[in-house]
Amino acid sequence: MRDVKLVATDLDGTFLRNDRTISKANLRALERLGERNIIRVAATGRNLKKVKDVLNTDIPFDYIVFSSGAGVYNWQKQEHIYSQNIVADSARKLLNFFVDQQLNFHAFYPVPDNHKHFYFRGAELCEEFERYFEFNKAHATELEEHTLPSGELCQFLVILQENEERFRNLKAAIEALCPEIRVIRASSPLTKGYIWLEIFHRSVSKGNGVLEICRRNGIHADQTLGVGNDYNDFDLLETTRHSFLTDNSPDKIKHRYPLVPSNEQDAFAVSVKPLLE
């Protein structure tokens, strides 16, 4: 690991504790990485507004890969440097498809305003959809079936009760409808028993966001380390040379990468410790 020049970490369930606070050990590890001129990246599914809800501007990250890679933000300069939205034609196809299927979904404005979104209540009552709506209703507008948005969108979020077959079938249908679209699976951070389908442009991923930062700083992918805790971190961990999962990851995926302690036990600090010895 002596050649590592960039470290990337997921936030929720990885860098942050369950109460969304930062441990002293993790904060000190960030500071020490900076002292060694190692670039520090938070790679998260949160939009930028939600990142700022949990990170003060003095937390010493260098970059934020937000909305699973739809945007990249220079944290030190507080400026956007990259974005990738879903083009208008594909956004329209997806809106029509989800409405026709009467699914519960959210459709998000293009980066950097993607904390704002449209919401649509489908045919099935979904408690998880309502919980998400309650958390985000200040920035939500109800979708009118007959006056659908016509421009680009950042992403879609479809919420399902956990059902592997339904998830696979829906994922295949969405990706067949728009070949430039990809579907990312995430476990609900709110309630067990639900699957979140996050739909982005195919080039959007945490890994590609990290590679964009590497390109801008003359860093090779072999000089990177990543740590995460869920399915939606695979894009990151498949990109970084040295990759780790936290012990609080779903049991089904723990075999994929070396394990570090849970997010409650300084997972980030433990994963980067060899860089600081």
Rank of each mutant, 00 (worst) to 15 (best):
L55V: 10
N85L: 10
F120V: 09
A88T: 11
A107H: 02
T191M: 09
F66G: 12
L170W: 04
L153D: 03
A172R: 14
P149T: 07
F97K: 10
G45R: 06
K137M: 04
E130L: 13
N18E: 13
V210S: 07
E212G: 07
V183S: 05
N104H: 09
V227S: 03
T147G: 00
R46Q: 09
S150W: 02
K171H: 12
C178Q: 05
D58F: 12
L125D: 00
L275T: 14
N248A: 00
L259C: 05
A221V: 14
F167K: 12
L103F: 06
L211W: 05
N114G: 04
P112W: 04
E277S: 13
H80A: 13
A43Q: 05
V158K: 04
V111Y: 02
F98R: 01
E277K: 15
I64A: 11
Y82D: 13
H115V: 09
V270E: 11
S249M: 03
L16W: 00
N26I: 09
V204H: 08
R46C: 11
I59G: 05
D247S: 15
Y119V: 04
E152C: 12
V65A: 02
R46D: 07
F120G: 06
N217W: 10
D89S: 13
F97A: 03
D113Q: 14
E128H: 06
Y132G: 00
N229T: 06
T191R: 15
E124C: 00
I181A: 04
N26C: 08
L177P: 04
Y63H: 11
E198Q: 13
G207H: 03
C214F: 08
